[in-house]
Amino acid sequence: MNDIIIDKAILHILDTSIGSPVLADKLMSFSPQADEFLKIHIARAMEDGDIKKGGFKNSDASVQEHSESCSPDTFDTEGFKRAISNLEPENFIIVSQQLAQNIFELALSNPAIPAADVLICHFKYDNGIYFGLLKFNYKQSYIHHFAMVGDEKETGIIQQNATIANESQKLDEFAFIRLDDFSVLIKEKKYEINGGKEFYLSNRILNVTTDLSPKTKVKIVEKAAEKVIKEYYGEDPLRVSQLKTELKSCVDENSIVEIDRITNAVFDGNFSAQQRYKDEVAQKGISGRAFEVTSEIEKTVARKQKITTDTGIEISLPVDYLENQKKIEFIMNDDGTMSILIKAVNIR
């Protein structure tokens, strides 16, 4: 795990059930436990498969409605960059309060946006200095209750509606802005605003444009290939196995998925299918020829392939088996059906 040094942080309470935010006026005093808690969440967030890369929109074309309760304002992108780059505590507190107020007002008028504690910080990670916004959306949990009733002890279970994510839970929403180049890393969810769902954190709070997340891109690569395989080759588990194997190899070798490499491996020699695949991937939003994946994706991508027969039999196979004829063999029968021979296994 990369070293994380938290320079300063402040926590604002955005509980829409009480009608007004609790905006802190002082920086957090960090205990060792709080410091470790925040570092764990930052480290996990940096490797989240749903994280998206982004950048600020041009300031001369940036009109942003900070919240439904405010009239539309011109979002001063350059001013915002200067504000979050100012490491002085007094300025940091003011900027954090303004961001928290904007989020609260938007959530207050749009109940689908979860109430939360918002933690804003400056921290160092991987030789960069970041301005971070971590939104700890409230979750329901239960705790014990104890009271004295006369001389008798009474216990019970009560519901807590404003608890935040623990160390083992992933955050649904956060944004990290690297201060040397103002690149943005963001994870967000769509919520209903004015009758339609949208990404409010990037569109209405920070005014940034974003790329697709690595997890979304991997799904596009897989689904597009499976679609084109079906169009050109029908139900062909061998082609699908080539897709899974090549995708796993890309990720394991250098954490980069190369579109051309997968295209050539899966649709070798079929130029029409290759072009159809590239068009399908581009249409779904992948514009480049390669993209990086996070360590979270590396652990989960294409480790198994499930084969389902027309009679409902399901076979789940490790990807490493698919092209190893010592382990498994796909045999095309004269009648157009396929036999699957699984070799040298112990039954347990």
Results as ranks from 00 to 15, higher is better:
230 K>H: 07
227 K>E: 14
224 A>N: 06
205 I>K: 07
215 K>G: 00
209 T>V: 00
224 A>T: 14
217 K>A: 03
215 K>R: 01
203 N>P: 01
212 L>W: 06
223 K>I: 11
222 E>H: 07
225 A>N: 05
229 I>Y: 08
217 K>E: 11
203 N>F: 00
222 E>N: 09
218 V>Q: 06
217 K>W: 04
214 P>S: 01
206 L>G: 13
223 K>D: 14
202 S>L: 02
204 R>H: 05
214 P>E: 00
209 T>D: 08
229 I>K: 11
222 E>S: 08
204 R>D: 14
228 V>C: 04
211 D>C: 11
217 K>C: 05
220 I>Y: 14
220 I>Q: 13
206 L>P: 11
212 L>I: 04
229 I>A: 08
216 T>D: 14
207 N>L: 07
215 K>D: 01
222 E>Y: 06
213 S>C: 03
215 K>E: 00
219 K>P: 01
230 K>S: 12
210 T>R: 14
214 P>A: 02
209 T>N: 08
213 S>K: 07
219 K>S: 10
216 T>I: 00
222 E>F: 03
211 D>Q: 15
226 E>R: 14
213 S>A: 13
210 T>H: 11
217 K>T: 02
205 I>L: 13
224 A>I: 08
221 V>N: 03
229 I>M: 06
227 K>S: 15
200 Y>H: 12
218 V>I: 15
208 V>H: 06
223 K>T: 15
207 N>M: 14
225 A>I: 06
222 E>C: 09
200 Y>A: 08
228 V>Q: 05
230 K>A: 10
214 P>W: 00
217 K>H: 04
226 E>W: 01
221 V>D: 15
220 I>G: 10
202 S>R: 02
231 E>L: 04
211 D>Y: 14
216 T>Q: 10
208 V>S: 07
227 K>M: 13
226 E>G: 13
208 V>E: 10
205 I>V: 14
210 T>A: 13
204 R>V: 10
204 R>L: 03
231 E>R: 13
228 V>G: 07
205 I>C: 08
231 E>G: 11
220 I>F: 13
220 I>M: 09
206 L>E: 14
230 K>Y: 05
222 E>R: 11
218 V>M: 10
206 L>T: 09
218 V>F: 06
225 A>E: 09
215 K>H: 01
221 V>G: 12
207 N>T: 04
212 L>N: 12
205 I>G: 05
206 L>V: 06
